[in-house]
Design a protein around this nucleic acid. Sequence first.
RNA 1: GCGGGAGUGGCGGAAUGGUAGACGCUCCGGACUUAGGAUCCGGUGGGGUUAUCCCCGUGGGGGUUCAAGUCCCCCCUCCCGCACCA
Length: 862
Amino acid sequence: MKGYDPLAIESKWQKIWEERGVFKVERDVHKPKYYVLEMFPYPSGRIHMGHVRNYTLGDIVARVKRMKGYNVLHPMGWDAFGLPAENAALKQGIHPAKWTYSNIEYMKIQLKKLGFSYDWDREFATCDPEYYKFEQRFFIELYEKGLAYRSKSLVNWCESCQTVLANEQVEEGKCWRCGEVVTVKEMEGWFFKITQYAEELLEDLKKLDGYWPEKVILMQRNWIGKSEGAEINFYVPLIDKQITVFTTRPDTLFGVTFLALSPEHPLALEIAEATSLREKLLEFRERVRRERKKIEEELVEKEGFYLGAYALHPLTKEEIPLYTANFVLMEYGTGAIMGVPAHDQRDFEFAQKYRLPIKVVIKPETQELQPESMESAYEGSGVMVNSGEFTGLASEEGKRKIVEKLEALGLGKRKITYRLRDWGISRQRYWGCPIPMIYCERCGIVPERLENLPVILPLNAQIDSRGRSPLPELKEFVETTCPRCGGKGRRETDTFDTFVESSWYFARFTCPKDPQPLNKEDVAYWLPVDQYIGGIEHAILHLLYARFFTKALRDLGYLHIDEPFKRLLTQGMVIKETYKCPKHGWIYPEEVSSDGFCLKEGCGEKVLVGKPEKMSKSKCNVVDPDRLIEKYGADTVRLFVSFAAPPEKDLEWSDHGIEGAYRFLRRIYNLVAENADLLREVSFSEEEFKELTPPAKKLRRKLHQMVKKVHQDFEERMHFNTGIASIMEFINFLQDSLKELDLRDETNRKLLKEALEKTLLCLSPVCPHICEELWQRLGNESLIAQESFPQWSEELIKEETITLVIQVNGKVRDQIEVASGLAKEEALELVMQLPKIQKYLKNKTIKNVVFVPDKLINIVVD
RNA sequence: GCGGGAGUGGCGGAAUGGUAGACGCUCCGGACUUAGGAUCCGGUGGGGUUAUCCCCGUGGGGGUUCAAGUCCCCCCUCCCGCACCA
């Protein structure tokens, strides 16, 4: 008998699955559908452990749902545009397209080796014009609806990537991709009007409640950042114009002692010109821009200057000095604020610095505020004071009343403001989807005609050595005719942010070959995605964009759904401990001696063991999926990544752990292989299990308990680790029982066959190859991949006897085996006779007896 | 600063308010072996006694309850997200 040979088994079954088209799927209105999707990868070159984990989780879900009778859509493709391809081109002299496609080819082989049940017929790469032509079409349609527009604005610029970044793509002042410090620059570019959907994006988060991780919902809610307040107008006599401020605290209107405008505010410039402070303002503006994305350290100190003019308080008509200040953002609200030092900490700090008056208008319930002695602003609620006719009102009520008054006077109105900004999508990059717009001297900005799409990204471009996009230099691309007047036109040379491609790929997977962008019947049947699985790092970026795109495509008539992803699972990272040598920096585990010294170049320094961190090449703590598969096989790798931690938690890599997984599969393999000959011809039915010995009954009970537990954990809770644990537990039990089970007895053989088959069925979503092989060895001609999830019987699960725990005053004192279903009185009677218990009850009076049927009895004494 | 999450053996992790530590790893002991880093069997939270039992134990302190890892309040630590958003 040969031992477990994973590689032979795995390639054998992968081939059979492929030949028989087991995972191909078509729309079938007579079957319930299930769409499970994992975030598709960027083809960076090789699969990493994060992918393995992500796709294993998805594959388990897909296989379980298939076993439950669903028509399962489980596709895979490539998020193929992006900067790394250009960087590789620069470094290795390979064209981005060639680099990308050869990576795809290699990674596809890797995915296939892992035995994922994808319908590969649906595969596509987003850099294919057959994909992005529809994206261009969507863009033009959105443009025509006013949902895409071109505008000049301050943008985040990454010098190293030579491109602008959306707000969501700046993390702690640095580029999300390369970590370069982001600067602020004024540029023209294209935007999607995501803000038009701000309220809906916020409101619909409620629909995801309970289905998405709370954390993600919360992050999105914060990102959208709704705040309710008012816009209030202050008249500026000098220029005969109003300045509008946004505030969430209209109740503090009587506490205003200054107004502050963003240095970017157009009226700031206008006033400065009128007061001969133009130069000073421009200089200040420049400096603030430079300091805007502060680098690491704490906030830049508040700073500003008096603009030499005043505004009139809308209600008191007092003169309020006008300042410009670095902490007022042009992008939020109206770009101007009313300064209420007594009740806003920022205003307080600014007022202190420039010796502006502090006027208390809200009195807290418990204390008296004295402007001279205040050390910080009081930002809470309270009773209004010094506020004219509003004095004495509760601040909450005052908010309403003041806004009503301003509205009546035409000096203000209620206003809701969002932190979310429009999505800037222009990238000054080559390897992306061309933006299908044309600049005509006569007609201005004109979209390309739909029938001329796609605007194909020219592949004959020479990659610029300075890292700039070659597109603007490419005459045959740039020079074109205006689709409207036929005159000379210039093509837009910016390309889309690559997040645009991933904003609708899930929809295209339902009809990847359709001549229409989205086939009505296919999207109606398949969407939304029932289960989406990916990393938490996309909590905002990708998931927000995709939600927006879904709504926008709905409003264009392409989709019928409001939300793209019904359920979301965000899996944790794969982490591993790191090793650092004082001399050599990060080193590989192989470079550390068994007693912890650096072996590199005979170095001998003591190696520092770092805590587990996300796997990365630079920290030398990666493990290569290819090598693991080669050594243990895909099933072992899949088993380990789904067993070692629950999906949403970080998974700590363990060399010993994967050995354990391998050991378990070997045990199962040997167990079945040893008995296969004996069991091949055995058949069984429920009828034949009517009369069983107590140990046989117990075995079946454990089996059915296990099946139920696996079902709950795999299908409902998605806690694969505990489901697998219960399979292991059952196998342990089965092997123990086998010592006593005489297999010359036919019933026992039937029993064993049932146990093994059901176990294999349960394990098959996790380790499909070995289960397929052993299923066959047990004499089955069907594919386990096409079998149903095993049934269990609640009747069989019931225990005949249970362990009754006996407590005295809440402490466990004894336990006895009793028949299940025992009544309280009977139990008490039994328990009272136990010497151990009598010991504790001696000279005590029983005050209470708590009885939990089939669980415990607690005797309370004084 | 604001918001969120988490603290359970040597480790990863289990536990609808009902025997804390399932399952796996590590480690220890034993068996089989020329050998084992293979396989199998047994043990493995701490302390005390070992025939048996007993005490302590889920970051710390209170509380609710017959009963708390689980619910409530306060505190500590760590992780994550946002960060002048008016």
